[in-house]
């Protein structure tokens, strides 16, 4: 399979200081790296899930792909086109749809649902024979009846708003969908419906998707591969089954274990991660995870690991990757 989307050494920086402070600070302190050398491929037709604690750069990754934040280095290519040196974003964004984290907040508050789902057609100057019919059709595909046509975003529940977001993302049958936390803010009883909807549409249209989530419970059911991010870097990437059952990076393992289950008998022993993610302007030396790593060894503090093929599949950035044996021990 070919890569529909590929990233090479992508770097995104944000200003860390403002005003006078920025002028006085040494140049390297003025900016922080939110993405620091991300390389990955998303194959045509697959779903890649990106996981990691908040602040790890997941949202920034999605925004860098469709040009909502500028790259400070590296390259993104989509469908064989390199997206650098002022690409035609208008044309690219027609084929790359994005779903934002806040289901209601990502809908323009003074537009009706009908206008919202037809917005992509208006933006791209596509004439429709019958606007109402098209809106009804798109909504029906997302499981909403025509009675929603004239509602405003604030009159929708989170789940309904999310459906409108899905309908709109698919309006122009895109090639790639970037979904930022599609289940955030939804009740568990609604999450399933939304994910089923996305799975169904993905299968029908052969969509390629990049799903950002910190809901680890849903990974198994939606993703083909998982990329784990920490401080703007990928620390492990590989097939979903392998990462869930046999995580090689200690951080991946801690993430997967930190997931309270609704089963009172399953009070299992888990590695509770020490401390929190460091700030972007205080990256630890060596392996950036070492201050929190339960299996760190002395040289981890001085030697930075790079992403290398893991023995069990995928790639991992750790000097001492975990194996099945160390896991059960």
């Amino acid at each position: 399979m070919t890569a529909l989307l590929s990233l090479r050494d992508v770097v995104v920086e944000f200003p860390a200081l403002r005003g006078l402070k920025a002028l006085l600070a040494p140049p390297e302190k003025r900016r922080v790296r939110a993405l620091d050398g991300i390389s990955l491929d998303v194959l045509a037709g697959e779903t890649l899930a990106v996981v990691g604690e908040s602040g790890s750069g997941k949202t920034t990754l999605a925004r860098a792909i469709n040009g909502l934040v500028p790259l400070a280095g590296g390259q993104v290519s989509f469908d064989g086109m390199a997206l650098d040196e002022s690409p035609d974003w208008h044309a690219v964004r027609r084929r790359v749809a994005m779903m934002f984290q806040d289901p209601v907040g990502s809908l323009s508050p003074r537009k009706t649902v009908r206008d919202l789902v037809l917005e992509p057609f208006a933006i791209h100057g596509i004439r429709l024979q019958n606007r109402r019919d098209k809106a009804v059709e798109l909504l029906a595909d997302a499981g909403l009846g025509p009675d929603f046509l004239h509602r405003y975003p604030h009159q929708l529940s989170g789940g309904q708003a999310r459906r409108v977001g899905v309908a709109r993302a698919l309006a122009l049958t895109p090639a790639l969908v970037l979904a930022d936390e599609p289940t955030a803010g939804l009740d568990v009883s609604v999450q399933g419906e939304i994910l089923n909807l996305m799975n169904r549409i993905k299968a029908e249209h052969g969509l390629t998707t990049l799903i950002i989530t910190h809901n680890l419970n849903i990974l198994r059911h939606i993703a083909d591969r998982i990329a784990v991010m920490y401080l703007g870097r990928i620390v492990e990437i590989g097939p979903v089954e392998r990462l869930l059952s046999d995580p090689a990076h200690p951080y991946t393992r801690a993430l997967m274990a930190a997931n309270p289950e609704p089963d009172p008998t399953a009070r299992r022993e888990r590695i509770v991660l020490k401390g929190e993610t460091p700030a972007l302007n205080a990256r630890p030396p060596g392996c950036e995870f070492h201050p929190r790593c339960p299996v760190a060894r002395p040289d981890c503090a001085s030697r930075a690991p790079v992403l290398e093929p893991a023995t069990t599949g995928g790639r991992v950035a750790c000097h001492y990757p975990l194996t099945k044996e160390t896991l059960s021990a």
Binding site: V188, S189, Q191, G192, L195, N196, N199, N215, L216, N217, I218, R220, H221, N259, E261, P262, D263
Partner: peptide, 11 residues
């Protein structure tokens, strides 16, 4: 409904 309950992949 809690997908954490499901240990096998479902569509």
């Amino acid at each position: 409904c809690d997908p954490g309950k499901l240990k096998e992949k479902v569509t």
